[in-house]
Amino acid sequence: MHRFKDLEIWKRSRTFCSEIYSVTASFPDSEKFGLTNQLRRASISVPSNIAEGCSRKSNKEFSRFLEIAIGSMYELETQLLISNDMQFISNKNSELLLKKLDSIVKMTSKFKSTLR
Rank of each mutant, 00 (worst) to 15 (best):
M1H: 12
R3D: 15
F4T: 12
F4P: 09
F4V: 09
K5R: 14
K5W: 09
L7W: 04
L7M: 13
E8Q: 11
W10V: 08
R12V: 09
R12I: 07
S13R: 02
S13M: 06
R14P: 02
T15P: 07
T15K: 14
F16T: 14
S18L: 14
E19C: 07
I20C: 10
T24I: 07
A25K: 13
F27A: 13
F27I: 11
F27P: 13
S30L: 03
S30F: 06
S30Y: 01
K32N: 12
F33V: 08
N37H: 08
N37E: 14
R40P: 06
R41S: 13
S43A: 15
S43E: 12
S45M: 03
S45W: 01
V46L: 04
P47G: 13
P47M: 10
N49H: 09
I50R: 04
A51M: 11
A51I: 07
A51V: 10
A51C: 14
C54M: 12
C54D: 15
S55N: 13
S55G: 15
F62C: 08
R64V: 05
F65H: 11
L66F: 01
E67A: 04
E67M: 03
E67G: 01
I68C: 02
A69R: 01
A69Y: 00
A69F: 00
A69D: 05
I70L: 07
G71N: 03
G71A: 06
S72H: 00
M73R: 02
M73H: 04
Y74M: 07
Y74R: 02
E75R: 03
L76M: 04
E77F: 00
E77K: 05
T78K: 01
T78P: 00
T78D: 05
T78I: 00
Q79Y: 06
L80C: 05
L81D: 08
I82F: 07
S83V: 00
S83G: 10
N84Q: 07
D85M: 04
F88A: 12
I89N: 08
I89V: 15
N91K: 11
K92Y: 11
N93K: 13
S94Y: 06
S94H: 09
E95G: 10
E95N: 11
E95L: 05
L96M: 10
L97V: 05
L97K: 08
K99Q: 09
K99A: 05
K100P: 01
L101G: 04
D102T: 09
D102A: 06
D102H: 02
D102V: 00
S103V: 00
S103L: 04
I104Q: 09
I104P: 02
V105H: 05
S109N: 10
S109F: 03
T114I: 07
R116P: 09
R116W: 03
